[in-house]
Design a protein around this nucleic acid. Structure first.
Lengths: 137, 137
DNA sequence: CTGCTTGCAAAGGCTTTGCAGAACA
DNA sequence: TGTTCTGCAAAGCCTTTGCAAGCAG
């Protein structure tokens, strides 16, 4: 069984980002933020409502979108229909196994873009997404 | 007006990858491969059928998928609903301006991952996708 | 000829939205 | 009591598919 963070911890994290902590948001936060992991909206849906219906599909989508927008989680786009939400928002990148669909973190020490290329005129960096696609040997 | 590659050049490129050169595929190849560029399926659709209907939507999608699969072009996934096809298949990465939706190449000399991190056990690298999100200042 | 390709429209998967009721401050 | 959220179902968007007709080799 997964060790969840407490309700109070979840509430604290939400408040810190000025997200009002409703029952549903707390549920989702507890599920997703309990450890560093990547989950799809569908997976969140499944886990949250495992025992009994707690959060509707619309709310799961809207909440994940809200969390990502507020910077509580990070959205990872692997493929048009493979979107994951990463509870680890620190600077890191990913391996994606195209055969298994597995998503694995690349350690910050292992791959770190410390010198960005020259950005296009009149722009500032917002984020660097690196996905290394691998396949099973 | 865009300078297109000739029909014969297009056919040669298709044959090289064992893609049988039908009228529609030649149209799309001429449109997309005439220069290094990024186009969405919708854009390809628009350009190809600018004057008169030449290729159906289904065929545009299927053909782009085929080309990508054969390695004639490269699929770039920016966002769940922002897929582009890149006529430049050489090793390079991209800036994506989240404000303008603009996609710009990063020169190979500017950003080159020459040392991959240690791959997960039992996997081999398939591709490295780097997208640096920027916003207008 | 025989299989591959196309186009149309319908189906699909995932996500967002409109809106009424519920919860919150 | 006014505002914010939720849930449901419907709508939306992009893409794929089924199938009959049309081509390529």
């Amino acid at each position: 069984m997964l060790e969840l963070i407490s309700k109070l911890e979840a509430i604290k994290m939400l408040r810190k980002l000025k997200i009002s902590p409703t029952v549903q948001r707390i549920e989702i936060a507890q599920t997703l933020l309990s450890k560093k992991q990547h989950m799809s909206a569908e997976q969140v849906m499944g886990v949250v409502n495992q025992e009994k219906p707690k959060v509707s599909k619309a709310t799961v989508y809207n909440t994940l979108g809200l969390f990502a927008e507020k910077g509580l989680i990070r959205q990872l786009v692997i493929d048009p229909s493979k979107v994951f939400y990463d509870s680890n928002v620190s600077n890191h990148h990913h391996f994606f196994n195209v055969d298994t669909g597995e998503l694995v973190d690349i350690g910050d020490e292992e791959l770190n873009i410390n010198q960005l290329p020259n950005l296009p005129e009149g722009t500032v960096a917002e984020g660097v997404d690196i996905i290394i696609r691998v396949k099973s040997r």
